[in-house]
Design a protein around this nucleic acid. Structure first.
Lengths: 339, 339
DNA sequence: TCGCTTGCCGGAAACGATTGCATATCTTCG
DNA sequence: CGAAGATATGCAATCGTTTCCGGCAAGCGA
């Protein structure tokens, strides 16, 4: 059926061993022989059987990626980066959608672990215990999730958030709201800290609008909650929520940015497709994918599994001003009401 | 290291052969033996080594999927469906982004074909000759691409487009434009036919606004072209383009749907996130993914490769009216100008 | 009781590649 | 000139599973 190493060996008139070495350790075979083998291989259109190789080396040349939702454009870009890097490394990606249920993640890891060389885990909602079991099964690389002693890459709120706040401050905003994501999210907590710190330093007030699910529904609810506060600008946990929030606000007839300025987080492609475009903090999604695979590969190809070098990399974010931020309204209509 | 069939065999006090059969052909081993084996396997946490199995059976249990652009939400939903079905079938998906270059697709197929049991090819831009080579390499299932003698699934313009046109007719539109996609696209041609036919039957005029690239840029150019025509409503090749077109139109200060009604195609999630929401023809993306994998699996698991049963399945579309369609403007401002 | 079928099970040969070890040839230096 | 060392190659074991084939025992009819 398909052409095997044996076929190549026969044609080049050498043993299969030498043939194999011509590819694996070229420096071990004579110049002339190597060329004869390579010529034979390409003439025959030889492609190594990955299964056979995997069987003996124990390495499949495939990395697994688990994302919570394939339809979330954030992960799409991460996947693109991951897949580009994987391709460069001569490996493939087994992509899996974990679906809504956080408790499905660990079983998924167990299944995948058996057939891949390592796993990139995106925005995992596993608890620490499960995470620890997961990493005992296979090399692991975390995206958007910080855990002690585990390698991973995340988006640094700096300098994106301070820049955004400075932008708001310069355009007259002093009362900022934060429409948060899931309470369990570590990155949400970190952002709150940065916002608090920066606002204090700049003499601005900030109020916590609440914690919402990081999806369209959460964004809509966020919009309703924002209208109950007296802030003139809001930072939103992610673009998806921000977009939903804008839509809901438009439904209420609220003018953006006239009455309220809105800043998202992620800079998904659709943020610029809106009119006005969504001002947002851009996170290097593509690079996060690249870095995650790099980290994983380093870990997976380390000869001794004894000394795991855990690396956490924070990639910088940038503020992208677009149409949903503008000068703060001069008069606060709600300000005349008593609480 | 890991637990193998041998370990299970020893514990259950049978041969590996019987052990293997207990999983593969349960009816061939005695009831008591089988149960002993199963118990031993689960006690030991046995997981079959896919590489070893693949080596002997020649089947990897993995299907490849090639998409032109992972960031296009259309494909994300297709992937979700595909992956759900693949999971049910006990297989995995190797997802690959073909990137911009159409000429990269064939090499990709060649690479993938060696390590998967079949390939789902989405919106392929390969020419027929390449397609023929591809199908000679591995079982193939086409999404959104019609080719003689190849299995695949596509979105039927019916009844979506006629319904949309009826909707427009009832709201006073008689001059319809079509902002088309790539000229090579077969589905584009089919849609043109359906539009022409339906318009003729309903006494409406339709004009071809032109052929554009199926991306954001194409949508923007489409907007510029639309403003040169005197239509009161346009059908756009896909939602991504429609969204970009709307954004550009908003930039020009054109009121939608006041001055122009817009209908998209696909119903990607963001179409409803806009305000007003995008009226569009919804295509069953998820089901297309499911069906594509079904088709592929049927083909890949057919014992004899002699009689390939090629099946083409058209899934029905539906019109979803939202905010970008409305009553046609009473007076046509451009009508007073001579061409 | 004998021969045959049937049901279960074990032995062993694959599958295609990698790699430790042995072997053969050639250099090189004392 | 001989031995040690370097270089190049082949042999054969091995990875974990599937599956063909043969054997043994039980059951059955004649």
């Amino acid at each position: 059926m398909s052409v095997t190493l044996r076929d190549v060996a026969e044609r080049a008139d050498v043993s299969v061993a030498t043939c194999s070495r011509a590819f694996q350790r070229p420096e071990l075979v004579g110049e002339a022989t190597r060329e004869r083998i390579l010529a034979a291989a390409s003439a025959l259109g030889y492609r190594p059987n990955r299964s056979a190789r995997a069987l003996i080396t124990g390495r499949t040349g495939v990395y697994g990626v688990i994302v919570p939702d394939l339809e979330n454009p954030f992960f799409a870009a991460v996947l693109k980066g991951a897949q580009a890097r994987a391709h460069e490394l001569g490996t493939q990606l087994l992509i899996t959608d974990a679906g809504e249920a956080p408790e499905g993640e660990l079983p998924l890891v167990r299944t995948l672990a058996a057939q891949v060389d390592g796993i990139v885990l995106c925005s995992s909602r596993m608890d620490e215990t499960s995470l620890r079991e997961a990493v005992s099964l296979t090399p692991l690389s975390l995206v958007n999730r910080i855990s002690p002693d585990l390698s991973g890459v995340y988006a640094d709120p700096l300098p994106g958030i301070p820049t955004a706040l400075r932008h708001l401050r310069r355009t007259g905003h002093t009362r900022i709201g934060y429409v948060g994501g899931p309470p369990a999210s570590r990155s949400d907590a970190v952002r709150r800290e940065v916002i608090a710190e920066q606002c204090a330093a700049a003499g601005m007030d900030w109020t916590d609008i609440g914690a919402f699910t990081p999806d369209v529904d959460g964004g809509r609810r966020g919009a309703e909650a924002v209208l109950l506060s007296d802030v003139t600008a809001v930072l939103v946990y992610n673009d998806l929520m921000a977009l939903a929030l804008l839509e809901r606000l438009a439904g209420f007839g609220v003018d953006v940015p006239g009455e309220l300025s809105v800043v998202g987080w992620d800079d998904i492609p659709f943020s610029s497709l809106l009119h006005p475009g969504l001002s947002t903090v851009q996170v290097p999604r593509y690079d996060m994918g690249v870095t995650a695979v790099d980290l994983l590969h380093d870990d997976a190809t380390r000869p001794r599994r004894e000394d795991p070098v855990r690396t956490r990399i924070g990639l910088p974010t940038t503020f992208v001003p677009r149409g949903t931020t503008g000068r703060a309204r001069a008069v606060d209509p709600a300000g005349t009401l008593t609480p």
